[in-house]
């Protein structure tokens, strides 16, 4: 599928773009810095540093970024043999969710060396993706888009195509919504118009996809039938802009959320379609035929997805 390759390319490009600052940060005296145990920060220098300066805890000023006036107490600083790895132990466990700012006085003759330690932003972005994809799967744990989910999960091919189109529409409309939200709705205090604006943007995207698809892949277009229209009136798609507005996501976070939500929808559709094909042969009690049994199976999937709850990758 061409669209799939395109999406892959876009993801790769974005990931590279995001990774760029990580590489540039490595310049200067500090090679690497990370949280280690509960109350430890590990710093790696590009070259050996003066042991006396580095091990004097009076030379350190450490605070959490939002609270610059509250100094964290360093209980010990140990440099390894080589003089390149420094381990800072704190008296209290650190709150690893926030960025920590560390300044060292007099290191390598520089009056003050300041750097920040935080969990990797890339990891955080990836966390949003995984969360929308698995942990808070839009179908199985947030119950969005059920109409289309039950409608199009009868056949694997339809399910795959539908999922890809959904992801595409979702990413495009979410990015546009983000733009509108941040540059029009917020500055002009028009937040109450968000529902109208978002649904308008979604319809616009769907129209565009419709036109493009009709030209590019008429077979796929035909197999969707009425469902492309249903995309407009679908909670999954409109939910993404609403969530990003609620959480004040930036553009990368928005992209990851939309991608994860779309991917999660695709995953759910695919899983469901793969079992529906088997279900059509089964001797299901007459009153359960059709939707009721689909609901029961979806419930079983939702139970399996409970296994992801509480997953914290980074």
């Amino acid at each position: 599928m061409k669209t799939l390759a395109k999406i892959k390319f876009i993801v790769l490009a974005v990931l590279l773009f995001l990774a760029a600052p990580l590489f540039s940060q490595a310049e200067g005296l500090i090679a690497d810095q990370s949280f280690k145990a509960d109350n430890e920060i590990l710093v790696t220098f590009t070259g050996p540093v003066d042991k006396a300066v580095a091990e004097d805890i009076g030379n350190y000023t450490v605070y959490e970024e939002p609270d610059p006036d509250i100094r964290l107490v360093v209980s010990s600083a140990t440099l390894n043999e080589e003089g390149k790895r420094l381990s800072l132990i704190f008296t209290e466990p650190l709150n690893t969710a926030t960025t920590h700012v560390i300044s060292i006085k007099g290191l390598a003759g520089i009056e003050k060396t300041t750097f920040t330690v935080s969990k990797s932003y890339l990891g955080y972005l990836f966390g949003i993706l995984i969360s929308a994809l698995l942990i808070n799967n839009f179908v199985f744990t947030k119950y969005l888009g059920l109409c289309v989910f039950f409608g199009t999960s009868k056949k694997k091919d339809t399910a795959k195509g539908m999922g890809v189109v959904f992801t595409l529409v979702m990413v495009v409309s979410a990015l546009m919504s983000w733009f509108f939200y941040n540059f029009i709705l917020i500055p002009y205090d028009l937040n109450f118009l968000q529902i109208v604006v978002f649904i308008g943007l979604v319809s616009l995207t769907v129209q565009a996809v419709d036109t493009v698809l009709r030209k590019v892949n008429p077979i796929l277009f035909n197999s969707f039938g009425v469902y492309l229209v249903l995309v407009i009136a679908n909670c999954v798609i409109i939910a993404v802009p609403l969530i990003l507005a609620n959480n004040n996501y930036n553009i990368f976070e928005t992209f990851m959320l939309a991608l994860g939500a779309g991917g999660g929808f695709l995953l759910a559709l695919y899983l469901m379609s793969s079992v529906s094909e088997r279900m059509q042969l089964a001797n299901i009690p007459p009153s359960f035929k059709g939707l009721p049994i689909s609901f029961i199976v979806a419930g079983q999937f939702a139970m399996a997805f409970l296994g992801f709850s509480g997953l914290q990758l980074f």
Partner: peptide, 22 residues
């Protein structure tokens, strides 16, 4: 009251109404 139960409850209730109809 957990998420997944919603599916089961709706599914079972639908089946119940179908059963009445049948």
């Amino acid at each position: 009251i957990l998420p997944s139960a919603g599916f089961f409850v709706v599914g079972l209730m639908m089946a119940f109404f179908n059963w009445i109809e049948i």
